[in-house]
Design a protein around this nucleic acid. Structure first.
Lengths: 235, 235
DNA sequence: CGTCATTTTGAGGTATTTCAACGAAGGTGG
DNA sequence: CCACCTTCGTTGAAATACCTCAAAATGACG
């Protein structure tokens, strides 16, 4: 509908590892852009609710989004964080599975599911890019399970930071300042299956041991990559 | 190459929920069969090793397979169990990510990755079925994260059993005898991020409270579905 | 500068891990 | 067919780590 700037899978500015298979041609990008609607959401705004009729798939242009699973007790677990260029909103039996909420201000592109289906069926190469992307996210989900299997809070937090670092490396955002941590402690806790306090203590312990530093709010810098990697791999 | 019986996504005999979108036409099945090689593996045999050159994708005809992540300490975590009709062996940068081992005797179909790619690019509908399948597995992986977020051993084990039940329901194997649990306690432990002892104790507690029974080795029957579901959903 | 949200710190309770030992089941070879 | 052995499963007791409850400190924002 409207002209859309660098859409999904466009080479991120300054990306180190521009894996060819994740690049779309300009023609393909135009094709997706043509069926997409851009949405701007402020932090804390929901994109859709769990169990709602699923009529669209979304691609993140910029920002961070969380998928939330509500428990009967009112507590909520975070199933996943999605970042720029991630696809989310894949439905199950025509309904969304998790409630999805903006963590930071975000730009998302909304693709009507039926239109997308037609476009993908019509363009086998574009569909293959899509398949590749979903496969990536699938693998990432598998990797995240390894984080959750760990029992120790310090290890989980270290792996979480490592995950963020890799995500930002892949997106070309190898920020000199350190790793951006856009989410709150309690979001991290809800994601790692720990309490907020446990996350805080684990973080503090990492700082205390000189493994990381927190130069500013929501930024982490690895001071001792060697020990940090040990913590990530350990056990 | 060789004629292959009911291949991937064929309607499982007696399936209750034969969701249309997961069904392949006979023509499509033949297409996949034509490029597949059948392998028979005994329990404990590896399918491939982590980091090995990835030249094939696999589809399980029958049996159970586990994907294993080896830790420096020699311990190993189980990232995933794969069942009949599941696809596995999706590579990252041309290499397999996890070591994959048969849990039971299995039949797997091996599809050379390049050939598969050609076939999928050539047949947009077949590729869409494939995309749908991977999306399913992706979602299942997300759901498994919810199991791992839980802290209590009893809850994790209950959710694990619930997962097995759903898997078998989907595969049309609503066995009157109960839920088949093809893997050992230590496999379950390595999957749930618990110790073998904790899994044993949790199971025993479920039996002790009359929630489940173990009529025979590797079979679990739900005695009290109400309380069982409470345990699964709880917290 | 006051208020609210976030983060940190403290102390006790509880669950799982660890370490150790025993019992049961299945497979192999004589 | 039985003995032997390996794997699997169960149970016990102490140590550890996280959770819970509580409160203070820090940072963001009007």
């Amino acid at each position: 509908m409207e002209p859309i700037p660098p859409l999904w899978l466009a080479p991120p500015a300054g990306a180190r590892t521009a894996s060819l298979k994740t690049l779309l041609t300009p023609a393909h990008r135009r094709k997706l852009a043509a069926i997409a609607t851009r949405l701007e959401l402020r932090a804390r705004m929901p994109v859709y609710q769990a169990d709602a009729q699923a009529d669209s798939v979304f691609i993140i242009g910029d920002g961070v989004i969380k998928a939330v699973h509500d428990l009967p007790s009112g507590r909520q677990q975070i199933v996943s964080f999605w970042f720029a260029r991630d696809v989310f909103g894949l439905a199950e039996d025509g309904r969304y599975v998790y409630t999805t909420i903006a963590v930071t201000p975000v730009t998302v592109y909304r693709l009507p599911i039926e239109t997308l289906r037609r476009v993908l069926l019509d363009d086998s190469y574009l569909q293959f890019q899509f398949l590749t992307k979903i496969t990536h996210e699938f693998r990432e989900s598998q990797r995240q399970k390894l984080v959750l299997i760990r029992r120790d809070a310090v290890g989980r937090v270290a792996m979480f930071l490592s995950m963020l670092a890799r995500q930002q490396r892949g997106a070309g955002g190898e920020r000199a300042g350190g790793i951006a941590v856009p989410m709150s402690r309690s979001d991290i806790a809800a994601y790692l299956g720990l309490t907020l306090e446990a996350v805080s203590r684990a973080t503090r312990r990492l700082v205390g041991h000189g493994v990381i530093a927190i130069p500013e709010r929501r930024v982490v810098r690895i001071l001792d990559p060697r020990r940090f990697e040990q913590l990530v791999a350990k056990i």
